[in-house]
C-alpha cells in the first residue's frame, strides 16, 4: 500500500510550516536584525507552497524535473538576496535544512504504520532537500560573487580619478599596475572628461605605477594618441629614475610624447602652453 505523498504533505502543509518556523526561530543564529519574523514566514510559506505543488509520486525521485523549476527560482531569489544582505552561509543553510527536519517529522508521524513506505519516502525527501541545499549554496555564492564584482568595478572607477587642476588642464594620477582593461577605463574616463570640461591639456601622472614595461608603455602611448585625436595634448609626468632607466633599456620610444619628471613641472609646461604666467603675488598653490 502506497500513500500519496503529495496529498499527505499538502494536507499537513500548515503544521509543516509551523514546525519549520519553530525550528528556524529556535536557532540561535536567527538574524532578527536582518530580517523580521513576518518576512521570514512569508518567504518560508512561499517556498513550501511551491515545493509541495511540485512534489508528486513521479517527481519525488527526480529533482531535475520541470515541476521544481519554480522552487529553484524562489530558492535562488532568496539565497541571492540573503547573500547581499550579509547573511552567513550557515544561516542561509539552516533555512533549507530546517525545512527538511520539519518535513521528515511530519512524514514519520504520518507513515509510522508503514515502515517500507516510510523508509522510501525519507530517502527521497532527503535527496530532494539535499539538492535544494546545494542550489542554495550555489546561488548564495553567486550572490556573493556579484557583490565582489560590483566592488571590483567600483575600485576600478575610484582608482582613476580625473582632476581638473586648472581651467583647461586635467590631471590623472595613475596608481597601481596598468593592464589593458585598466588602460581602457583610464582612457575612457580621461577622454570623457576632456569632452565635458573642454580641456585642451591632460597630464597623466605615472609616479604611482610600480613598473613600466613595454606593454604598459604601449598603453600609455595609446592613451596619448587617443587624446591627440580628440584635439588635446597629453603630458606624461612622474617619470621616476627607475622608470626612465627601464624605458631606455627596453628601447621604448617616448620621444613623440612630452614627458616631465614631476607633476609640478608638467603643470608648468601646461601653463606655458596656455600662455599662463604664474606669479608669486597670486599666491598659487602650484609653483
Amino acid at each position: 500500500m502506497k500513500q500519496d505523498i503529495s496529498k499527505l504533505l499538502q494536507k499537513k502543509k500548515k503544521s509543516i510550516l509551523e514546525d519549520w518556523m519553530h525550528l528556524q526561530l529556535a536557532d540561535a543564529g536567527l538574524r532578527e536584525d536582518l530580517m523580521s519574523n513576518d518576512e521570514l514566514r512569508e518567504q518560508s510559506a512561499e517556498l513550501l507552497d511551491s515545493l509541495l505543488k511540485g512534489i508528486n509520486d513521479k517527481t519525488i525521485n527526480d529533482f531535475n524535473s520541470d515541476e521544481f523549476a519554480p522552487v529553484y527560482e524562489i530558492l535562488s531569489g532568496i539565497s541571492i538576496s540573503r547573500a547581499r544582505q550579509g547573511f552567513s552561509p550557515r544561516e542561509t543553510g539552516i533555512f533549507v535544512f530546517s525545512l527538511k527536519d520539519a518535513l521528515l517529522k511530519t512524514i514519520v508521524t504520518e507513515l509510522s504504520n508503514d515502515q517500507g513506505a516510510l523508509l522510501e519516502t525519507i530517502v527521497s525527501v532527503n535527496k530532494l532537500l539535499d539538492n535544494l541545499g546545494i542550489v542554495t549554496f550555489e546561488t548564495f555564492i553567486k550572490g556573493r560573487e556579484e557583490v565582489i564584482l560590483r566592488q571590483t568595478d567600483e575600485i576600478a572607477e575610484i582608482s582613476t580619478p580625473v582632476i581638473q587642476v586648472w581651467d583647461g588642464i586635467l590631471a590623472l594620477p595613475i596608481i597601481g599596475t596598468l593592464d589593458s582593461a585598466r588602460t581602457q577605463v583610464v582612457m575612457e574616463n580621461l577622454l570623457q572628461h576632456i569632452v565635458e570640461t573642454g580641456s585642451t591639456i591632460a597630464i597623466l601622472d605615472i609616479s604611482g605605477v610600480p613598473a613600466v614595461d613595454s606593454l604598459v608603455a604601449q598603453h600609455i602611448i595609446k592613451t596619448v594618441a587617443a587624446t591627440r585625436l580628440m584635439g588635446a595634448e597629453c603630458i606624461i609626468s612622474g617619470i621616476r629614475p627607475e622608470i626612465a632607466q627601464t624605458v631606455v633599456h627596453l628601447g621604448i620610444d617616448l620621444s613623440n610624447i612630452v614627458t616631465k619628471a614631476s607633476l609640478a613641472s608638467a603643470l608648468k609646461h601646461a601653463f606655458a602652453m596656455l600662455r599662463l604666467d604664474v606669479k608669486r603675488i597670486q599666491k598659487e598653490k602650484e609653483k
Partner: peptide
C-alpha cells in the same frame, strides 16, 4: 571626435595624418 571613436582609431592603428584636431 567622440571619445569612443578616438579609442577605436588608436586600437585600429590609424593616425589621422595630415589633419589637425580640436575639441570643438
Amino acid at each position: 571626435m567622440q571619445p569612443a571613436v578616438a579609442i577605436t582609431l588608436v586600437e585600429l592603428g590609424l593616425e589621422l595624418k595630415g589633419v589637425h584636431t580640436a575639441l570643438n
